[in-house]
Design a protein around this nucleic acid. Structure first.
Length: 460
DNA sequence: TGTATGGTTACTCAG
DNA sequence: CTGAGTCCACCATACA
């Protein structure tokens, strides 16, 4: 339906110029406000999204988790389970036409009240830069880090989304320090670290389980959701496109480095699905675990080797090249006493770290990962926190970062096989549950909380 | 194999 | 600063 005449381009340009002017005005006001509020005690970050006045997060529809609707005879396009009324007779809950199952324009999904035209353009600019200097940025940095140099600058704190953060990812760019986070409401927020503005969208209606920024094209960002929907944000087209819709929840989203055509999703109870973008179809689907897969990670040295962690109490490694018919056999299985929240390969690919609700972090190394080091760590999060039991590797094989209930970041040394310190700051007023490390900026560590804040630690 | 139930417990906001 | 309200995550257990 979009009118496509030559004048359309010009009209759009003018519109952009106008919106930029508005934004500059807004920015000036905003920075004034920030300066003023900085005189108060910095209880929480002064940086924050500003909601469009007509959209408030409080009156959200309840969070919906897909649970094998097919087996319950509920139509796949139903909005799912609605509170206690569980069963085939559940009437379709019709929301106003706002809920579009297909593509959503970024304008419709936008919830921050300021213009995002500059942000959208900068995304495309980054994408172009990226293509230009692709060769320069080929290799990720691998460098050791002095822990004592890590500190939290109060400028590097922002409330990026409302509610509880479930997913956080830095842009894989050496020129930009931008982070994207997702929350339980289905919001995705973007923050250029240190700046005062945050851009907030709502492309989903349930918890975001994964964010995947295409390394070769930063303006294309995949998001997966508990409601079973996989979207692609395309800044160029200014849409959140619908890529794939499952009957079951998607719990994780991943991609090996250098792979561009396929997406790897944790689907339903124990399912691993490979989605092929070229043909728009499931390429493979296996049930690898007895319960949900919490993380999918790839070995950077051998990208066909994957590690999964699952609520069934195990983590497994797989060689995705070798399928025995429709079956896939684990290379190795690592068992915990309770649910395993994460299994991540170290930056070198030589070690695997698992984190479990049995209050341990295990580090496996050696030729066949047969050498296990088990470190005790309190991984219990209650009802109100995202499970922070996801120890994340730093920039080399020496340290892991994991949340601490006392508002800190515990640092585990893989060499010493123990916790060596806790990063603490008076500015950190909430518990960091989810972490991400900046690929190109050694020491830049993001901790995301259940209150929507993001804390960026940097190296002094 | 599936479902219903109980337990955990941090953050925000109003006053 | 204090305390009420949030609420529907997630897992483990019990039971059909």
């Amino acid at each position: 339906m979009a009118p496509q005449k030559l004048t359309d381009y010009e009209r759009k340009r003018l519109e952009n110029i106008r919106r930029n002017d508005e934004m500059m005005a807004a920015l000036k006001l905003h920075s004034k406000a920030t300066q003023l509020s900085n005189f108060k005690r910095p209880r929480v970050g002064t940086k924050s999204y500003n909601m469009k006045s007509e959209k408030k997060p409080k009156t959200e529809t309840p969070i919906v988790i897909r649970r094998s609707l097919r087996t319950r005879g509920i139509p796949p396009d139903s909005k799912g389970l609605d509170g206690d009324s569980v069963g085939p007779t559940t009437p379709r809950k019709t929301e106003p036409s706002v809920v579009s199952l297909g593509r959503i324009s970024m304008a419709d999904a936008r919830e921050s009240d300021h213009s995002d035209s500059f942000f959208v353009e900068s995304l495309m600019g980054m994408a172009q830069l990226k293509a230009q200097y692709a060769s320069v940025e080929k290799g990720k940095v691998e460098a050791s880090l002095g822990l004592e140099a890590l500190y939290l600058d109060p400028e590097n704190i922002a409330r990026v989304v409302p509610g509880r953060i479930t997913s956080a990812r830095f842009f894989p760019s050496s020129s930009v320090k931008m982070i994207a986070v997702g929350n339980t409401f289905g919001n995705v927020g973007f923050w250029n670290v240190g700046q005062s503005e945050v851009h907030l969208y709502r492309p989903h209606r349930a918890p975001i389980s994964g964010i995947l920024i295409q390394p070769h094209c930063l303006s294309k960002i995949y998001t997966s959701c508990y409601d079973g929907i996989l979207r692609l944000m395309d800044a160029e087209k200014e849409i959140f496109d619908l890529v794939f819709e499952s009957d079951e929840s998607i719990f994780a989203l991943s991609q090996p480095t250098n792979e561009t055509n396929c997406l790897y999703l944790a689907e339903g109870s124990g399912g691993l699905t490979i989605w092929d973008n070229r043909i728009g179809k499931r390429m493979s689907h296996w049930v690898l675990h007895e319960s949900r897969i919490n993380t999918i990670d790839f070995n950077c040295k051998n990208p066909h080797i994957a590690a999964t962690s699952s609520t069934d109490g195990t983590a497994c490694t797989w060689d995705l090249r070798y399928t025995d018919g429709d079956k896939l056999t684990a290379l190795r299985t690592f068992t915990h006493k309770r649910s395993v929240q994460s299994a991540y390969f170290s930056p070198s690919g030589c070690s695997l770290a698992t984190t479990s609700l049995d209050n341990t972090i295990a580090i496996y190394s050696g030729v066949n990962m047969e050498d296990a080091a088990v470190i005790n760590h309190n991984n219990q999060t209650g009802r109100w926190l995202s499970t922070f039991s996801r120890a994340k590797w730093g920039w080399d094989d020496s340290y892991l970062f994991v949340g601490n209930l006392k508002r800190g970041v515990d640092v585990v040394s893989a060499v010493q096989r123990k916790m060596v310190m806790t990063l603490e700051s008076q500015h950190m007023s909430a518990i960091p549950c989810r972490f991400d490390t900046h690929s190109y900026e050694v020491g830049m560590l993001a901790g995301a909380t259940s209150g929507g804040q993001v804390y960026i630690w940097t190296s002094r």
